[in-house]
Write a protein that binds this DNA or RNA. Structure first.
Lengths: 234, 234
DNA sequence: TCGGGACATATGGTCAGACCATACTGTGGT
DNA sequence: ACCACAGTATGGTCTGACCATATGTCCCGA
């Protein structure tokens, strides 16, 4: 008889499932602590190493953070940091050529355009302030490195205008993936005036609530910044 | 002096970095094998458990797959499966209320609209065939479960029209996240005629190359399918 | 009473070694 | 040529030990 080659559940997978079940049933939320590794191992009848592998997975996915020592902050604490996980994922898959920079850049364009088109109600004074501050710092930037830093802040705030945390986290990861290339591109380019003009145009459109103009401005900017598959900028 | 609390690099993080370096420098690609856990531990001067934690992380991120036994397929093999990682990430963060179904649904709308707007050149005969096949199977579906299965195939193929693997993988994950709710919603709804009409309208627009009509059809469909933050459908 | 230092303790991080489960590989007999 | 079986490489798991880190606790001296 040809049975399906049923892959027995590994111990650490069971641990993950149990922790997930506890989160759902006990209503655990961000900030709550999980039992210690030794205690968890005893409760679930597995070795501590299996618990640790489970924790590593959950940490990778940005759901728990572990700290040694004693006190309220020690141990495994539930968190909500999906951006790091997404950044790791993109970095590794781009390194493997499983994803191309073109695809990354395209996704970024999609998110930023969507964000400005759905900014109504999310363009708070605080966010507009941050956009202006980023613009000012970009102008005063003394190096490509510094310029890209504030450029990242600008585009990240644009993504926040979507009012969608998944998109914001993804934007974080996309930016991190492109970061190194962006610095090199700005250094190669030398002059940042065209980029600054793009940024100001985007800001004005957002501030005045002109969604389509903002989307067009973003398209122009990113097209300029990613002129070819090899040289992405910010 | 107030130094930054420098977190010493953990052994398994070093292992990950070394593997990543090898991928980049030795030009490893999907399908290549990594050394065995024992060998890797010896080479990098760490314990096998640290190697295993590193492998767990890489497996979670969808870049390696491990198989026991012997032969060419055994050991840790480089893969390119980002969708599973994204699905795990979404499931856990939704469970933690770190992401809402509204945000997930909204992201899905964004991707599908972008996909049909950029379908030019990617709407291959094969993909159109798959869309038609999914439509036919949805019509003949005998259960909500079966209907949702083919509905997923339909929308996944729509995402493929973007010609962007990152968006396709993300769509996989979004669908998986919504799956359970979708089945319940279809069962509650009983009749699937309106959903089928939506699907046909989407297909016709895509097949005739009318991007804006396709985008509008998707907006209508997903608005109908996700009528409120609690009850998403497909 | 208050401060500070020494010790206790809880928690994660790492290692070594053992054993099991799995699945190919090679060998030898038929 | 085929097939059965032993060999072996590989991941999966457990145990126990020890280190590193950070907080709690307690006692002593000023």
């Amino acid at each position: 008889m040809g049975w399906e080659p049923v892959r027995r559940t590994r111990a650490f997978e069971d641990v993950i499932a149990q922790i997930e079940r506890r989160i759902a049933e006990d209503g655990l939320t961000v900030g709550d602590r999980l039992p210690g590794e030794r205690q968890l191992a005893e409760q679930l009848r597995v070795g501590r190493s299996s618990v640790r592998e489970a924790m590593r997975v959950l940490e990778t996915l940005g759901v728990v953070a572990s700290h040694a020592g004693r006190g309220p902050d020690a141990g495994a604490v539930l968190t909500a940091r999906p951006a790091g996980a997404l950044a790791d994922l993109l970095r590794l898959h781009v390194g493997l050529s499983s994803l191309s920079m073109r695809e990354v850049a395209e996704t970024r364009m999609m998110i930023e355009q969507w964000a400005v088109r759905h900014a109504a109600g999310h363009a708070t004074p605080d966010r507009l302030d941050r956009l202006r501050a980023a613009l000012a710092r970009m102008e005063r930037a003394g190096s490509a490195d510094e310029f890209v830093l504030h450029d990242a802040e600008f585009h990240l705030t644009i993504a926040e205008l979507s009012g969608n945390r998944l998109l914001t986290a993804t934007m974080h990861a996309l930016r991190a993936t492109v970061q190194r290339h962006a610095v090199e591109a700005v250094e190669r380019l030398g002059v940042t005036d065209p980029l600054m003009a793009d940024h100001r145009r985007i800001y004005e459109a957002v501030a005045s609530g002109d969604s389509e103009e903002a989307a067009a401005a973003i398209a122009d900017h990113l097209t300029r910044a990613y002129p070819d598959p090899q040289g992405p900028t910010g």
